[in-house]
Design a protein around this nucleic acid. Structure first.
Length: 208
DNA sequence: TCATTAACACGGG
DNA sequence: CCCGTGTTAATGA
């Protein structure tokens, strides 16, 4: 674990901080498709993502959700920062996209380090910044792109995260993430198949 | 025009 | 049989 930390964060965080992290953080492994955070929940520790990917979803008032963006290795969750620093409840779902390895850092510690370590402060601020940019991109896509573009982006993002050309997913799951109906997804996917961009299987989509 | 909802048929596991 | 998929028809924004 120390080694992984060193590899992932060695160039950003100073040595003493790394050893402090190893002292207080707990390591956790989570399988794919696990709900990690739900709306209304208070957060007691901050995750540092070592490996894998987590998707962040915004729920509507009818129990449906919309995919906002993904967290990848070396990143942390901006919503968690909000919750920890402001002591408020979560506004989002966090669900593992792939199997995930992470470190949990106690809230108290991360507040201490904010004052104590410049590198930590920068890490948190940078992380906040990039999350904000991703969120803006997502808003742009949702507001200004049609379903076809959103779906294409979704597929390529998924392929990147899973490091695979074959995505084990159903049309209904995609429809939920994009907050639309399955009919639309099926129709666009058929169209993409005719254009030789994908090959459709049952429970799977192959990208070309 | 394009999304949504409901409805139905097909077929693989 | 159940579920995922493909398609259509009606309705709406």
């Amino acid at each position: 674990m120390v080694q992984e930390l060193q590899n992932r964060f060695g160039n950003i965080l100073e040595k003493e901080l790394i050893s402090e992290i190893t002292a207080v953080a707990t390591f956790a492994e989570v399988p794919a498709d696990q709900e990690m955070i739900r709306p209304g929940q208070y957060i007691k520790s901050m995750p540092l993502l070592l490996e894998g990917s987590i998707k962040i979803l915004r729920p509507d008032d009818q129990g449906e959700s919309l995919l906002l963006y993904h967290l990848e290795q070396g990143e942390t969750c901006a919503m968690t920062l909000n919750c920890c620093l402001g002591h408020t409840k979560s506004e989002i779902f966090a669900v593992t996209e792939t199997p995930v390895k992470l470190l949990k850092i106690p809230v108290q510690k991360m507040e201490d380090w904010m004052g104590q370590y410049r590198s930590w402060r920068n890490f948190i601020l940078n992380s906040y910044h990039s999350r904000m940019m991703e969120l803006l991109e997502s808003v742009d896509r949702i507001a200004f792109s049609n379903m076809e573009e959103r779906l294409e982006h979704y597929l390529s993002e998924k392929s990147k995260l899973l490091a695979s050309q074959t995505l084990p997913i159903t049309h209904q799951q995609i429809a939920s993430d994009l907050h639309t109906s399955r009919v639309v997804i099926s129709r666009i996917l058929k169209k993409l198949e005719h254009q030789k961009q994908v090959i459709l299987h049952r429970n799977a989509i192959e990208l070309m």
